[in-house]
């Protein structure tokens, strides 16, 4: 399957992963990859002050669509959605705009949210659904809440129905559940690092997303893999026991890279056994900042790897 075919296989990609695994980086990369593939793409962040806009020179994405990049036929826009703003939107749409601003300000959303568990998440998902339904966008990439919360987030619609919600909330929950269950509309891209805790957590999250939410899983992205350095081991062996300053540094750095690569390879192997999903490997870039050049470099790798992928949205094998 080509990258374009994957990016067109559903309307929404929800990018989820434990904090610190590079979920935002992967979200931005998928957004750019999609725009470069000629799709009209919308990148959505769900938390305030995230860094999703940074590579595009925007400190904080506003609530309104904002142009990020143009790429030939395709383009990338970005925005944020927060529950408070989604609530105000929702109330306005339900003829309650007179009080909506005040309710959001005075913490009334806490009260509503406690009465109806998951309502914040549902409001957010409802807003995404509304965009998917009404706006002319080819692909929506959502930077989801951190992993543990991703399941709660995506379970919110089903949870509210089970809790006995009725009225507009129940209607909204039904529409959202329908959207999440349809793999032509929605799939999840899980992101992890090749380290023990992130791998364990991503495996748990994957099964729980499939069993408890019933949402399709796209390929899993393993981020920040230390790239191979051909010839490194041979040269390390040739170093012998030289104790010069430079050779001590060379030896330590080479051993460090080899050990990191080995421990990452072990974790990837465990992932492949326990979670047989198509995999996309992104390299560690040797710079800490997240700039447009980094995203661009990762996009090249992402497109290449998507092109090499087989099959349709994945399923965790029994």
């Amino acid at each position: 399957m080509s990258a374009a075919a994957f990016l067109r296989s559903s309307r929404i990609l929800i990018v989820a992963g434990k904090g610190g695994v590079g979920k935002t980086t992967v979200g931005a990369t998928l957004g750019v990859a999609s725009a470069r593939s000629g799709l009209d793409t919308l990148l959505i962040e769900l938390e305030g002050h995230s860094t999703l806009g940074r590579p595009f020179g925007i400190d904080e994405l506003p609530y309104e669509d904002t142009d990020l990049i143009e790429a030939g036929e395709g383009r990338l826009r970005g925005r944020r959605i927060t529950p408070d703003e989604a609530l105000v939107d929702y109330l306005s749409g339900n003829g309650l705009d007179r009080i909506s601003g005040r309710l959001a300000r005075t913490g009334t959303i806490d009260v509503v949210a406690t009465a109806a568990p998951g309502i914040r998440d549902l409001l957010t998902l409802g807003k995404i659904r509304q965009i998917e339904e009404n706006e002319n966008v080819d692909l929506i990439v959502v930077d989801a809440p951190a992993a543990g919360h991703a399941v709660t987030f995506l379970r919110s619609a089903a949870g509210l129905s089970e809790a006995g919600a009725d009225g507009p909330v129940k209607d909204q929950a039904d529409l959202v559940s329908e959207m999440l269950a349809d793999d032509t509309r929605c799939q999840v891209v899980l992101v992890t690092l090749a380290e023990e805790t992130p791998i364990s957590e991503v495996i748990e999250t994957a099964y729980s997303l499939e069993d408890d939410v019933g949402i399709a899983l796209g390929p899993i992205v393993v981020n920040s893999l230390v790239p191979a350095m051909p010839g490194l081991e041979a040269e390390l062996n040739d170093l012998g026991n030289s104790r010069s300053k430079i050779n001590r540094a060379r030896r330590a750095a080479a051993k460090y890279r080899i050990a990191r690569r080995q421990s990452q390879a072990d974790e990837v192997k465990r992932l492949d056994v326990e979670l047989p999903l198509p995999r996309i490997d992104l390299p560690m870039l040797f710079r800490a900042g997240l700039d447009e050049a980094s995203i661009s470099e990762l996009t090249d790798v992402m497109l290449e790897q998507l092109d090499a992928l087989g099959s349709t949205p994945g399923q965790v094998a029994e």
Binding site: M229, P230, G231, L232, E235, L236, L239, K245, I246, R248, A249, R250, A252, A253, A254, Y256, R257, F286, R287, A288, G289
Partner: peptide, 29 residues
């Protein structure tokens, strides 16, 4: 980690390229 290669002349062979990559990463961090 600091591998102690600051201010040393590095070549282009894999050992030095490796040192340089981690050195650059550390500097940006």
């Amino acid at each position: 980690p600091d591998f102690g290669a600051a201010n040393l002349d590095l070549g282009d062979d894999p050992l030095d390229a490796n040192l340089r990559q981690f050195g650059d990463l550390r500097a940006s961090e």
